[in-house]
Amino acid sequence: MAEEITLSVFRGDRSGGREQEYKIPAMTGMVVLDALHYIQAHQAPDLAVRWNCKAAHCGSCSAEINGSAKLLCKTRVDDYENEVIHVRPMHTFPVIKDLVTDVSWNYEKLRQIPAFQPAINAPFTLQQRDVDRLQEFRRCIECFLCQNICHVLRDHDAKDAYWGPRMMIRISELQMHPLDTADRLDLLKGAAGIGYCNITKCCTVVCPQGINITENGIIPMKESVADKYFDPLGGLVRKMHK
């Protein structure tokens, strides 16, 4: 691999900015976050980048690398041999500084989702197969790359109408919990705006945890909404069945 690598990193804040080039020595197995740390330590100490664990567990270092939404700590520099590595902040959220964006909107929405309401008290008796679906969604590291790539939020800026894939799988995991008693379907159809999703699946493509957001989360929730609002016959059958 090349001995020197070139990074072009977005520098700027809410008022604007531009990419700036840095040249740094390459190291075996280096990830883009390592490269940014090198720049911080030797060339630009005030380069702002959010990170915590550097092991793809925390979901802090989300950014856009050469046009792909990725975690900086999981993207190897040698994936871009003989290329300039362009690093930019997530597009969907307002820039605070350099690569750091304001993701507080996501926490506001997380707060608005009705919490788990178990029918009984722990310890629960649940089989692994009953919780497999929930555990898939609970792998989420809240990197918000799905929120970033979702065109409803990214291009249409419809944050007031649709809460995004992260919230959809959060609601899914609660709705699919065998012991949960709360009903979030009104929320899903209403304020959370599941109808805005047109299942174009970019959230699933970018998920660093490999969660099948669309197939296993959003589509089943769309079907649950259809159960309640678009299928009076099915609803009647289910009522009688109970």
């Binding site: 809410r14 597009h91 959220f93």
Partner: peptide
Amino acid sequence: MAQPAQAV
């Protein structure tokens, strides 16, 4: 939003 759109 400060940063221009880029293809991802």
